[in-house]
Nucleic acid binder design. Sequence first.
DNA 1: TATGAATGAGCTTTCATTCAT
DNA 2: GATGAATGAAAGCTCATTCAT
Lengths: 201, 201, 201, 201
Amino acid sequence: MVERIVAAGREVLVTRGYDGASTNRIAAAAGVSPGSLYQYFPDKDAVLTEVLDRYLDAMEARVSRAFLDSVAVAGPGAGTTTTAVRATLEALLDTFSEEPDLLRVIVEQLPRSPGGRRAAFAGRIDDLVTTVLLTHGAGSTDAARAAAWTVVRTVEHLTTGYVLERPGFARAVVVDELTALVAGYLDARLSGGRVASDGPS
Amino acid sequence: MVERIVAAGREVLVTRGYDGASTNRIAAAAGVSPGSLYQYFPDKDAVLTEVLDRYLDAMEARVSRAFLDSVAVAGPGAGTTTTAVRATLEALLDTFSEEPDLLRVIVEQLPRSPGGRRAAFAGRIDDLVTTVLLTHGAGSTDAARAAAWTVVRTVEHLTTGYVLERPGFARAVVVDELTALVAGYLDARLSGGRVASDGPS
Amino acid sequence: MVERIVAAGREVLVTRGYDGASTNRIAAAAGVSPGSLYQYFPDKDAVLTEVLDRYLDAMEARVSRAFLDSVAVAGPGAGTTTTAVRATLEALLDTFSEEPDLLRVIVEQLPRSPGGRRAAFAGRIDDLVTTVLLTHGAGSTDAARAAAWTVVRTVEHLTTGYVLERPGFARAVVVDELTALVAGYLDARLSGGRVASDGPS
Amino acid sequence: MVERIVAAGREVLVTRGYDGASTNRIAAAAGVSPGSLYQYFPDKDAVLTEVLDRYLDAMEARVSRAFLDSVAVAGPGAGTTTTAVRATLEALLDTFSEEPDLLRVIVEQLPRSPGGRRAAFAGRIDDLVTTVLLTHGAGSTDAARAAAWTVVRTVEHLTTGYVLERPGFARAVVVDELTALVAGYLDARLSGGRVASDGPS
DNA sequence: TATGAATGAGCTTTCATTCAT
DNA sequence: GATGAATGAAAGCTCATTCAT
């Protein structure tokens, strides 16, 4: 039953948008009475939060996996960073392209309500990337955190942006550009040990 | 009269959020009757769209200016890109920090309603940057457009993100990181003539 | 319009009771849309409070008047207390008998909600009676207050009780009994100067 | 099972008030399913009526007992009435003070629902007092009934009123005042044989 | 043109009651 | 008997919009 309601919530969210996602509409879409909804969720927000949480949890698992796999596969040696970044990007684009409608609602309409869910999500990805950067000679923890923050937001925003905007160029182009952007940055940051806190560049 | 309504719309938007921005509330804040509002705007969304448009127009003017000034000041020579990028970033952070409350509402709550306003805004910045990149040896138009798209979204998202998130590190750090990220990318893209459309890297 | 709503509130209160006095029902009875109700009253309770307040204000005016008139008419001399009490009782029974349906709802169903309205009403009558008792040699203020509290509640409860219960005896009987009850008490309290604070008798 | 439900009903009534006494809440407090409740009671009101009935039955037993005991103890002779009235009042105040929370809900919130339960209760006390008055020379049955009605309502209302209102004077004061009020009245009614219907109206 | 009272559909939520298990 | 999931009507209230003045 929870399943039906969450599924209905997702469906209504996608088809009618956040403002159209009324409890009555969700209940109707679930083939359930409005009252029943409140036996499984304390209020309307809880339903949408559950939809969001499931999406974010799935995303986090896949993104983490893709990232760690890419790092592992790339191994040590020249071109390593580029290879890992490219693999991660491909995986992210694959993932985000799967449910673009839901992605759109979440990116465009959901940021506001549910308390920091998306921030928490991003924060965990930050931590993961920070850790990996530190194991690859990123210098101080602060430097790694700043670099992670920078890279994670960049990659998240541009990959989702590409999927949602569908600008006029091919996916391969985005992958190339993003790879250049990120790998160049990371190579400079990692190899030289030159880090943000070293000064105003 | 339109002025009063738009100003009231902005005020209510900032103080009560998107969901609190009812027509009655906006009319009251404007010292105007609800009916009058409908003589200048077809519906509620039109008011908020106007608020958004004005903000975006002001932003566009300032961002364009900052960017062009930075490019002009940097002039030709070594370290040019870095200098221009850094100057642009500083100007953007200054600009976005001025009305963070309104910025927050627009970034977090307004994306949903108005048809493509923000996309159009970003598109015009894209064009501007594309042009400048072309005059600096960016190769093909397609390559320049892809690079502009990449850079503009990165810079926009990370500068607003820093202002709104206030992560745990200093503004100078963000400027350093973003400068390294973007300048490194552009230098590679511009000097080598190596561009996205050249192939899968 | 306020009049229509208050009148409708009173009507619905009388015909459907407190629990049946829904906003929709009141609005319908007033020939008004539910929304209109909220242009004149902040919430449902405010409507019912207004109904109650008007009733209590009218009651207070009439009760005070009746009491003071009775005291004045009786003048000094033997049998004075009896005359004054009897006159007051007659006036009260007249007053309460006028809108017995509304009286019933107020006495039986309304005590709970609106913040101390009825207590405040009774308190003011207490003050009035206390004052009169003091001017007739009631001894200490404390004694007068205790006597007033006692007498006011007794008279209020028994007169309304008679109107609402319609027990099996004539109105004249109630007047006689209550007169005997109250006048006897007051005579003992006033003349002898024996007052409550003298001790446990 | 009925016991558990009634006990839960009382508890919920006291802790959440009449409006908070929903069937679900009562069932939960009883550790019973909502469905089970309907196997022992036809509807929600029946549960609350049962709570009320039990309270009233207990009250009736104690009040009758206190009254009869007081009459018996007082015995014949001067001051008898005063002694009996005072003893009864003390007993009533003791009784009502035991569960003031429940008393409050019943007096302030329950009058509205249940059909005439409280009237029946008062009627039985009336009968009892009528009988005693008749055995003490109250004259005609009608006179005794009128006197009983008067005295019972007065005593009931003022004793509960004192417990619930907690006005600013000591319990001893209320006892004194009420004793003076009631004993004076009864002495006049009993000794003189003068009864209501004899009087100047 | 400006008003602002009036609208009424729609919102979220509660709850007495039922009924298949 | 006992359950508790399911119901659905109804509650109080909001708000974008209209229209007679």
